[in-house]
Design a protein around this nucleic acid. Structure first.
Lengths: 197, 197, 197, 197
DNA sequence: TATGAATGAGGTTTCATTCAT
DNA sequence: GATGAATGAAACCTCATTCAT
């Protein structure tokens, strides 16, 4: 029961911090502002997270692990053309982030601000994502479903870039979720057609 | 005539700041560190730039305007298939940035740190670049050289994402310029094939 | 309950700042000098006051409200000839300030230094004081105790000037409290005789 | 001829500085702002004045000496009842300052800001003025035109306070010159009636 | 005489983190 | 666990003054 309360508080901190990081940036958000918004004392933040950097990193891990788990499910547990899986995966990521603009902005922008985070987490995230895709493409190559000279690592890279670019545009221009998803669909189609056999 | 603001000194500041911003990030670089590296006093920085924010912004303007000018030349002054122009343009950008890793990192990462910069400059840069591409694609559509349902704006977005992604990977992993250019070539090819008629 | 903001500490800051403002002037006193004299860290000053300006303003409010409260008591709670009340009020003000030369100097000189303070507080102080006197004179007029053509607002102004001038002279020349009070008595008498019926 | 130009420049500096000191205060006005307004370089300021402090002091001397010279003329060169001379003197001072609100504000407020100025000049000004009045009152006493127990020094003080107070009020509230002079006339009358035999 | 770039000392303020309560 | 006052290091920036031109 005490545990429960504790998780709730931790989540409230994460939520508050994500909101503020997204709004004002990592360096322009102070611990006391976070405490304020989370309706607790500065001291309490340090009960749950050992530093501001740590707080940022934990925000990601929490969110990202769940997201990637779901993508993995699509990639491994469904029976489809691999390029359709790829399409569905892209959709899932963008769809999920489109429900939480704050988190999206943190992912795209703020993660790059903390040196520690940038160095320790960002590559990890990219690697994990790119690996998932690489495996998918390797599978497609084995089944002879894509052009021969395709470089799987590069596909990972490119799709990552695609997602980032489209989300960043959405964050800046602020159109509807529907338009965002439509843009993604089209862009993904061009790209996938470029590699499909 | 008294001493005039020297271009040399101004450039030394820009160079020093870019190096440090790239190395340690915008917020983790202090004006006094910049002054140190530029071998002048802190006060002198403020003779040439009116704030730290301004310094970051000026770094961009300087570099970016020249780069974009060259891309524009390719797009408007050469006679080629528009998609080949697009290819050459991508190559020019990556090629140029690959010669100055510091500047590349500043472009990709640090620009997003300063709120002022992010809000005032980043969109401007994106817009300018995306517009160049949009015009190119429009031209290609008129000449019936690309698939019919192509969305020019989206192509702009996607190529921007492509460049960012590949450069970011390079910055993180640190391979040779040659490998970087090779990766770009391949990725660009997939993409362009996806839209070419 | 954690440590609460201590009134003692706040007062120590006020005392130290008043001393230094009086000695060296508002602009020539640094926050770190104040912290030094108050035997605490610079950061602590900002726990109690949100800026240097604010510190100056708070010094006044504290001191002035009490002083004016006492003057008001004389004016409203005693039964005397209104001009005698006026005389007693002048005496109280000068008497009180004569016990704290630092505060007197801050009142007369430093208040005018901070733009914020000058614009927001100084007029408020003057208005409050001049109003008290205005009411007193109005009362005296009703009772037909002063000359007919007396302008109450002007009396307020003039007595304020009288007090300022005499205190300023004392601060500059540094004679004894007794002499100061004697001067005030005489000057006040000339003035009051000028308006008494 | 060269001399002429030089005086003109010096005056332009004084004028500019007075304006800015009055507008923003002594400490909040920078030498480069003064140079700006005077349409010359910072270096030039230092050709004519040896420091910022010195500039403030010189502003006064210039203005004040002329003003006091005129008051002295009234006091010594005209044949009137001494209290009428006093009245005329007060009028002259206020009248003159009312034509140059900037200078008035500098006199009343900014003079107190520079330590050097406050310590060296302010007392000198007060002394000079108070002495003029003292002599006048002494003369009046000899001729048995004022009450017996009048303290000449105190009259000096009081009239100085009167002027300051009324000018300060005018500066803050900003009414017309006519109203200002009317207020002075009345206030001076009360006061003079208090001491006239 | 006139200039204005250069300086460096010093100012105010912020803030992540600690720790006594 | 929870609090928030206390800290001190460091940040950005200003500015009177100097001096080479």
């Amino acid at each position: 029961m005490a545990r429960r309360k504790s998780v709730k508080k931790r989540n409230k901190i994460i939520e508050s911090a994500a909101k503020l990081f997204a709004q004002n940036g990592y360096f322009c958000t102070s611990m006391s502002e976070i405490a304020n918004r989370a309706e607790m004392s500065v001291g309490s933040l340090y009960v749950y997270f050992k530093s501001k950097d740590d707080l940022l990193i934990e925000i990601f891990k929490n969110y990202f692990d769940e997201l990637m788990g779901n993508v993995e499910k699509i990639f491994t547990e469904t029976e489809q053309h691999p390029l359709d899986k790829l399409f569905d995966g892209l959709n899932l990521v963008v769809n999920t982030l489109s429900n939480d603009k704050d988190m999206a902005k943190v992912f795209l922008v703020e993660l790059r601000q903390s040196n520690k985070a940038l160095e320790s987490i960002a590559p990890e995230i990219r690697d994990k994502y790119e690996n998932l895709i690489k495996n998918l493409i390797d599978e497609a190559k084995e089944k002879d479903l894509v052009k021969k000279n395709i470089d799987p690592e590069l596909i990972g890279l490119s799709t990552f870039g695609l997602i980032e670019s489209i989300l960043f545009d959405w964050i800046n221009k602020g159109y509807t979720k529907e338009k965002l998803l439509m843009k993604l669909e089209r862009a993904a189609n061009y790209f996938i057609q470029g590699i499909r056999k």
